[in-house]
Design a protein around this nucleic acid. Structure first.
Length: 452
RNA sequence: CGGGGCGUAGCGCAGCUUGGUAGCGCGACGGUUUUGGGUACCGUAGGUCGGAGGUUCGAAUCCUCUCGCCCCGACCA
């Protein structure tokens, strides 16, 4: 993308309404525009990151054998009357009446609807196990939306639902989700710690929340410092293997890690003192097993091997896709701006032309741009007729992990600069080597997508 | 919903106390400058002062009502 043809409305000054760093940076980097309290337009740069995150979630879901579909944002009230939640959900549910005076609602979640789909089409245990998911906009009429996309009223969420014949199978689905979530967050450059959580209105005895540690997090968390040493890494998992998934769950949940909702000082006290940590965290996902809570009242049953019809065991699993943008920025920024992890960056590298209009420099930038694209990378070429300082400042603000700086002085020696946004370190190398270097850097990222 | 605060040009703000018909910085646009970390200079455009009503010869300024936004709290992916 050439910046002169893009739409990147960066702000030089901080919008006064934005108090936390991710919100401020998203506004300044021209990623979002607020339309009303808790509701945002996604401008091109923000939309790119949103799509990358969505893509990673899809890839990891499908890798785990889960099946994508898409349910609507508006739902009929009757489905919710069946489960009893139409009355239970309260003010947070946005209710709408159409021209025929029928009651509708803007879906805050989809347990009822997915259960309806399931019961309409699945009748036999032979069709199980089944996990369906979608990534769709949700609406929850928060009392007080805040922190930009971290607590919006309209937000993009991946929500998935598993259907199993037995509790044991459903708990395997639970474990499988835990594993796939660990992979998902790691690909985004995040460490999200599974913590024992509270069921809340969705209910259920088995539930973990995934939290990203950040000073601005809304939850207080307590954990054993050993847990932050764990990484999922590149290990290969057979998602159908109950024992393998169970082992991962045990590995990642055996140490103390709880939010303030479930925190227990007595148990926490058993953790060696030098490993006890108190911090704040941002919730970026949650998994539940809730048995037959919805299948029973809504009649989602299958005929089992013995010929008897039984309600299915279910669980649900969510990832706050739009919230992740905020969480990633909270965890990856400095005083100059955002620092995107390579897995989610909107562009792989920026090209800064220090002397726009100079024939040699323009030509060198164009060929680097072309070579990167030919290699499957997406560069953002700052070809505006601006001062170098302005270009650097913009690049730092929008946070591309790598920058190639091209100027006449360097080109005279066949040199460009390749700069790492996070460390600030620069190396000098030929234009061809700079591109080759970037191809190497991004190889594992692109391969992770390709393998899925 | 309780408490606090704010709405004046695209963004950040001043002006309001003590009414006299709107200003600064940045940005935008047109030039000059040809630039290695938000350059300098010249010029231009842009505002029903959130909205409605009232007081007054006259309201951004005073009064009443209203809408919106932000922050703290209870609640939540």
């Amino acid at each position: 993308m050439r910046l002169s043809r893009y739409f990147l409305p960066v702000l030089k000054e901080d919008p006064k309404e934005a108090q936390i760093v991710s919100h401020r940076l998203m506004l300044r980097a021209g990623m979002i525009k607020q339309q009303t309290a808790g509701i945002y337009s996604w401008l091109p740069l923000g939309y790119r990151v949103l799509r990358r995150i969505e893509q990673i979630v899809h890839e990891e879901q499908e890798r785990a054998g889960h099946v994508p579909l898409l349910m609507p944002t508006l739902q009929p009230a009757d489905l919710w009357r069946e489960s009893g939640r139409y009355d239970d959900y309260g003010e947070e549910m946005l209710r709408i009446t159409d021209r025929h005076k029928r009651d509708l609602l803007y879906g805050p979640t989809n347990e009822e609807m997915i259960t309806d789909i399931f019961r309409s089409h699945v009748n036999s245990y032979k069709d199980l196990p089944l996990t369906l998911y979608h990534i769709q906009w949700k609406f929850r009429d928060e009392i007080r939306p805040r922190f930009g996309v971290m607590r919006g009223r309209e937000f993009l969420m991946k929500d998935g639902y598993n259907f199993d014949l037995t509790k044991e199978d459903a708990l395997h689905a639970y474990n499988r989700h835990l594993v796939s979530y660990l992979r998902t967050y790691e690909r985004m450059g995040l460490q999200a710690i599974p913590m024992r959580a509270d069921g809340g209105p969705i209910g259920g005895d088995y539930t973990h929340e995934f939290l990203v540690l950040a000073e601005t997090g809304e939850s207080e968390v307590f954990y054993d410092s050993q847990i932050t040493d764990l990484t999922f890494g590149d290990r290969q998992i057979d998602y159908d293997d109950h024992a393998q998934c169970q082992a991962v769950l045990e590995e990642f949940t055996s140490r103390y890690a709880r939010t303030d909702e479930t925190h227990d000082e007595a148990i926490f006290a058993d953790v060696p003192e030098d490993r006890r940590r108190t911090a704040r965290g941002i919730e970026v996902g949650q998994i539940f097993y809730f048995g037959t809570k919805y299948s029973e009242p809504m009649g989602a049953t299958v005929v089992g091997p013995d010929g008897a019809r039984v309600p299915v065991h279910m669980g649900s699993h969510g990832i706050g896709v739009s919230r992740l943008l905020g969480a990633i920025i909270e965890a990856n920024h400095d005083d100059k701006g955002i620092i995107w992890p390579e897995g989610v960056t909107p562009f792989h590298a920026g090209i800064v032309n220090l002397k726009q209009g100079d024939e040699t420099t323009d030509g060198a930038c164009e060929s680097i741009y072309g070579e990167m694209r030919a290699a499957g990378l997406e560069p953002l070429y700052d070809d505006r007729n601006d001062r170098a300082g302005a270009k650097f400042a913009s690049m730092d603000l929008i946070g591309l992990p790598w920058r190639i700086t091209v100027g006449p002085r360097g080109l005279a020696k066949n040199i460009v600069e390749l700069t790492n946004r996070r460390s600030g370190d620069s190396i000098e190398l030929s234009p061809q080597d700079a591109v080759a270097r970037l191809v190497e850097i991004y190889r594992p990222i692109l391969q992770a997508s390709a393998r899925a």
